[in-house]
């Protein structure tokens, strides 16, 4: 079976799921469409099992934060090794309490990818077997990839700021100069450059 273009895939999905599939966004470089979060799992199962689509590879699962629209969008990149075609889909979630079905039951690859999104964006995936933080420590506060994330100024008493190393040298220079001035009274400085010019 031939590879389908994103338009064909979109058309096919719209026929089956109707309202749950958003319009295809053409002006962007990679066209994408939106999935209704409520029917995500159903759509994903179809994506994988339908012989014409056969998206057997969840190539990427990530999220983007949009504070202005008050949305977190989960971005799915599906790929089919059988037909060698690709589909980008998004799920728009409420930013205050982002929650969506886990697709781990469809693609095992989603396990770690969803954990990462949970860790960095705070999206909770219902039905995920092992939803823990993955990259950050378990007791980390906040979700760093959100746009409004503020650094807590350290972790467990370990500061994440440090002095400018140059300060050490500047201090040393100052102390040296003080020592010198103690040892020998300062000689009134002349301005040799200015004289040479004149």
């Amino acid at each position: 079976m031939p590879a389908l273009s994103p338009e064909q895939i979109h058309q096919k999905l719209t026929q089956q799921f109707g309202e749950a599939i958003g319009p295809l966004c053409a002006p962007q470089k990679d066209p994408f469409c939106t999935f209704a979060p409520s029917r995500l799992l159903e759509i994903c199962r179809t994506l994988k099992t339908d012989p014409e689509l056969a998206f057997d590879f969840l190539q990427d699962l990530t999220a983007t934060d949009h504070p202005k629209e008050n949305q977190i969008r989960i971005v799915y990149h599906f790929y089919s090794y059988t037909h060698r075609h690709m589909l980008v889909a998004k799920c728009e979630l409420d930013r205050a309490s982002p929650e969506v079905d886990s697709v781990e039951v469809v693609w095992k690859a989603a396990n770690w990818l969803e954990r990462e999104v949970f860790d960095l964006f705070g999206v909770s995936f219902t039905g995920h077997g092992d939803l823990r933080r993955i990259l950050l420590p378990d007791d980390w506060v906040g979700h760093p990839l959100r746009k409004d994330y503020q650094e807590a100024g350290g972790y467990q008493g370990i500061s994440n700021v440090r002095d400018n190393t140059l300060n050490l040298y500047l201090d040393a220079d100052r102390l040296m100069a003080e020592e010198k001035s103690k040892q020998a009274p300062p000689v009134p400085e002349k301005a040799p450059e200015a004289k040479a010019e004149s």
Binding site: P27, Q28, K29, D30, F32, Q59, D60, T62, D65, H77
Partner: peptide, 30 residues
Amino acid sequence: GEAQSRVESARGEMAYYVVSDGGEKAARVR
């Protein structure tokens, strides 16, 4: 706009997903 690049890295397919909002900085790099 947004774009995803896929290259065959030594450790397999490496994909950069870059979202731009028209500014000097990327809105999201994945």
